[in-house]
Design a protein around this nucleic acid. Sequence first.
RNA 1: CGCGGGGUGGAGCAGUCUGGUAGCUCGACGGGCUCAUAACCCGUAGGUCAGAGGUUCGAAUCCUCUCCCCGCAACCA
Length: 495
Amino acid sequence: MAKNLYITTAIPYVNGTPHIGNALDYLLADIWARYQKQNGHEVRFQVGTDEHGNKIAAKAGELGITPQEFTDQMYGNFEGLMKKINADYTDFIRTTDVHHKAAVQYIWQKLGPYIYKDKYEGWYCMGHEAFFTDKEVEASNGVCPDHSTEYQKVSEENYYLRASDFTDKIRQAIESGEMKIVPDFRKKEFLELIKDGLQDVSISRPKKSLSWGIPVPGDDDQVMYVWLDALANYITVLGYPDKPEWKDYWPADVQVIGKDILRFHAGIWPAMLLGLELPLPKTLLVHGHVNVGGAKMSKTVGNVVDPVELIDNYGVDAFRYFFARHIPTQDDGDFTWEKFENAYNNELGNDLGNLVQRVANMVVRYQAGVVEGNAASEHDMQPYRLAIEALTFDQALDEVWVIIRGLNRYLDTVKPWDIAKKKDSDPEAAAHLTEVLEHAVNTLQQIGDMLVPFMPATAAAIHETFDNEVVAVPEVLFPKLYIHTPDPRGAKNTP
RNA sequence: CGCGGGGUGGAGCAGUCUGGUAGCUCGACGGGCUCAUAACCCGUAGGUCAGAGGUUCGAAUCCUCUCCCCGCAACCA
């Protein structure tokens, strides 16, 4: 019986527009989900948006609309991106959903034994919605460098979650592999971070300083701060606590997160789960960040790469291919237009697209489009499978390309075009030719299978071409594009 | 001594755990082929494996020290 699987992505704050990092989250989760589905599993795949907090309220205020109206407008940008990158998710949660809000209040109450109220006094920055240490405030002469506003001495009462209670359990879960943190160096990093224990974490704000959020049950003066609200989405989206189906999917098999939010997902989130007496997620997949030409991507620098632009110009599968293969799944990667176009033209166009053309062409020319063989190609899938299961998707694609190159080499070695010349006079040659083309077609079908999780449309196109009883030469896959790099072909079109 | 990652032919990386011909992709150069998207295939050049010392018959790999780069700690995946 197929096992129910569950994968989640971090829910982005709808404050801004979606960027490449969000896209990376969705893409990695989607690859995994499609792979598992292809192998007969039922997969639940959650995405969503984080919609509370002061920044949202402030922006809405500027626009003269309510926060709810504002987020209603904004969340579509994220849903749009998911569709755009062809992420086949099953659930979309907004933290403003009625069920989510009620469920989070239930969670708060259930966590009661681990929640306490305390007074905090410190330097507060309105822009950050956060406190800063004396040292930081001194270093910047009392003015927040990001917002050019003065820090304010604020004393307020907050509720805290006693995460410290769970330090030992969490550390043990990580060390034993009950909750895997992938890659290994992230696990090391986090264990080092909590060497002296987890810190209790503030989970509420006074209503007067944070109006747009889920009310704290039983205390009209307090509103929940982001963590409890946002992290809870991973279970509330499944229907926790009132719809029993959630039990079929929790604990999550994989939670995809960026390296910047590891500490929340490896610390606060497990503390919440343990407080609720729920099992911990099996794996946290921590991906890196995408740099541009070696520099951090940032709005202020203006080097932000827009995923939508990429997809519109090169197609969604080219986008998925580049970010799956050339951005290491578990580490930082680098984007440049040159790298992207290189990969597009050479690997997708020359290696794969051209291979499809040449095989289809020969089948049509030499055998009127007919290939008898239905023997499955027997290339070794093991390295590919192991790479996916180890969550190193880049390496899985490397394995696919080993086969693609291998087939190109095979054709050059066997030279079907030579055999074809003799096929009419020599029955043995005709049989040999059939055999060669069968092998090529079967291999391409297998390549199509392997590409299903990564490039669904391309995989479908390959199968459409070669699964037919009579093969026709298909449209060119990945036609050459030289938008950002010089066209090496003719002289005429230099930019 | 804050923590973590890294320094391997022009570029990007693998190899380091488990010492023993230094490998892959791109780029450059030369050749071949003609089924194909000026594509594909083959070959050549190019590396004192950051540096110093040590262990060893033998070190990119193990040990010690030094130098340099990046990330986190400081809204952002």
